[in-house]
Design a protein around this nucleic acid. Structure first.
Length: 573
DNA sequence: GCCGTTTTCGGCCCGACTGTTTTCAGTCG
């Protein structure tokens, strides 16, 4: 897949062109194309071979030509030309908050700034503050931006951001002036990573609520505290923005601040064609306000159904909403069990009865206890003998559980040669077999996974790409081939809900569903507390537009067990 | 650079905030 590669080239070109003062609309065209390519769930090379590049929204003849050149020759002349005009360290500085292309260009032109060090120098010696339109305060803001930049304001996983928001909302919602409170931004859209954290409040007394907010005990630094917006840093230097709006505008503001930007731009464009205007205060015809108190009003007045936040990426959801044809997305309440959790038998921290209790508390009907297999020494993988002991314990336990069922399983390793870490006769004793790669990330991974999927006992492949959001790249694997293999063999693919994995991601999960592959959302919990991460996996599934029937752990347990039988018959026949 | 039952040319989302200004530019979301 060259999608990301090309997207990054266009993004870089946009940065350089913007720095050079190119027309904003051209710059935006590159940015939009970059985003569309990143979100594309299909391989750009396939589209290219079909001669359909220009059918991608945001790709016209000019960009199609550049993509074509790149895919044919491995080079993009225009990219090389543009990028070579400006030192790359200089363009990197555009990531610094409060330092935009204009200021940077001016500092470059008049003061010779070309990288972070020279920027710091002209701040320290006061020459930056002496430029026209600059002053001490602007420079101080840039300095603070540099600090944020340096402590790497990288996006954080939703699993880190969500608890921060939950805590703040818990603290503020009982305040008498707070009428409504909701997360907004990419967090509300359940994006796998979150930049800034946005929270929205409906109130008549904004200043008071924002004062309360900036005085919360976890606040480490106050960046702004006005009547409509408060901005603070909490643990780990994470920025949280709280916006206060009047109750009459809460729906419009929530819509606006939830984004995505691309979704909103598209929506406003539609509104404009109907002679309407949308802003964060409401939806208007001329001076007349037609709505804005509830988010639904915005969508209904535009003639469409309300769109779940997770779908708001301008990937076709607006057309579906206009046709009243949005899918019924899976919800957390649809989940009947977690098929991949670890117990104390391997590297988990809980006994099986403890896991059962926790699963029951969550309203589950079943749980799949899948510990590591023998060759995963660092995780205390089970020998076949120990595994069979575990199966015995589970069988005994199930007799007293009236209704609830523990599935005896294993997360069996796919070895270097594509063989599984237990013989088939051991796998046959289990209710559920999940295959996974834990070693040899660069070693024929695609072939090994395909081989594992051909084993009739293997129902699920766990975390199919192996990526970690905290940094690990993932296996060298041809994802499209794995998705097709899953479709052919009737193997289920996992959406691993553990916050650092979220693997498959939303684009791959959507592609899988298109190919007819079934999915399972599992937490891979090693602690009781991890079970709640199911929420993030469901978020990925909703971003992939999945309805409950596509996800096997919304099914009754019997149907899951039958699925394995069906796969065995299919491979035998 | 993209795009079109308003247009193949002339549009391209919209507003707040900040700091620097005396009417506005830059940045952000």
């Amino acid at each position: 897949m060259k999608n990301r590669e090309i997207a990054e080239m266009f993004e870089r070109m946009a940065d350089v062109l913007e720095f050079q003062g190119e027309m904003p609309f051209k710059v935006n065209a590159y940015r939009k194309a970059s985003r569309v390519l990143q979100d594309l769930d299909q391989d750009i090379e396939e589209i290219w071979r079909a001669g359909e590049l220009e059918k991608i929204p945001g790709i016209g003849s000019g960009l199609a030509k550049k993509i074509d050149e790149y895919l044919r020759t491995g080079r993009m002349t225009k990219y090389e030309e543009v990028v070579s005009q400006v030192p790359s360290e200089l363009i990197d500085l555009m990531q610094i908050p409060n330092l935009g292309p204009k200021t940077l260009a001016m500092a470059h032109k008049h003061l010779g700034v070309r990288d972070l060090d020279s920027l710091k120098k002209v701040i320290a010696d006061g020459s930056l503050a002496g430029l026209p339109g600059m002053g001490e305060k602007k420079v101080q803001n840039i300095l603070r931006g540099i600090q944020l930049f340096e402590q790497s304001q990288a996006r954080i996983s939703i699993g880190e951001a969500y608890p921060i928001v939950e805590q703040i909302i818990g603290q503020l919602k009982s305040h008498p002036a707070v009428l409504k409170i909701s997360p907004a931004g990419s967090l509300r859209r359940m994006k796998e990573t979150v930049g800034d954290i946005d929270i929205l409040v409906a109130t008549e007394r904004g200043r008071e609520v924002i004062q309360e907010f900036v005085r919360l005990p976890q606040v480490q630094d106050i960046l702004a505290a006005g009547e409509t917006k408060g901005s603070v840093l909490v643990q780990g230097g994470r920025q949280v923005d709280l916006r206060a709006v009047a109750p009459d505008s809460f729906g419009a503001a929530l819509q606006y601040f939830t984004g995505s930007k691309a979704h909103n731009v598209h929506l406003r464009d539609l509104a404009k064609r109907d002679g309407l205007k949308i802003n964060e205060y409401g939806i208007f015809r001329g001076e007349e306000k037609l709505g804005g108190k509830e988010e639904e009003e915005i969508y209904h007045i535009l003639g469409m159904d309300w769109i779940p936040p997770e779908m708001r990426e301008d990937r076709g959801e607006i057309d579906l909403a206009l046709q009243h044809a949005l899918p019924r997305l899976i919800t957390l309440q649809d989940i009947r069990g977690d098929l991949h959790v670890h117990s104390r038998y391997s590297d988990g921290h809980s006994s099986i009865p403890e896991l059962v209790e926790a699963a029951k508390e969550r309203g589950y009907e079943y749980i799949g206890v899948c510990d590591h297999s023998q060759s995963v020494k660092y995780a205390q993988g089970l020998t076949p003998e120990k595994l069979l002991e575990k199966v015995e314990e589970i069988r005994r336990l199930n007799e007293g559980l009236n209704g609830f069922q523990v599935l005896a399983g294993a997360e069996v390793d796919i070895l270097g040669d594509g063989q599984l870490d237990y013989p088939d006769e051991v796998l046959a004793e289990l209710d559920i077999v999940i295959a996974a790669i834990h070693q040899g990330f660069k070693q024929n991974v695609t072939e090994r996974i395909l081989a594992a999927m051909r084993n009739p006992h293997v129902l699920i492949v766990a975390h199919p790409t192996g990526r970690l959001l905290s940094g690990r790249e993932g296996y060298e694997v041809d994802v499209e081939a794995v998705l097709r293999g899953a479709a052919e063999t009737g193997t289920v693919l996992e959406i691993n809900a553990y916050y650092d994995r979220l693997d498959l991601d939303d684009a791959h999960a959507r592609r899988a569903a298109e190919l007819g592959v079934l999915l399972a959302i599992n937490t891979d919990a090693h602690l009781i507390d991890h079970l709640k991460m199911m929420l993030y996996g469901v978020g990925v599934a909703r971003r992939a537009w999945l309805s409950p029937e596509k996800v096997i752990n919304t099914w009754p347990v019997q149907k899951i067990l039958e699925l394995r039988k069906r796969k065995q018959q299919r491979l035998a026949g």
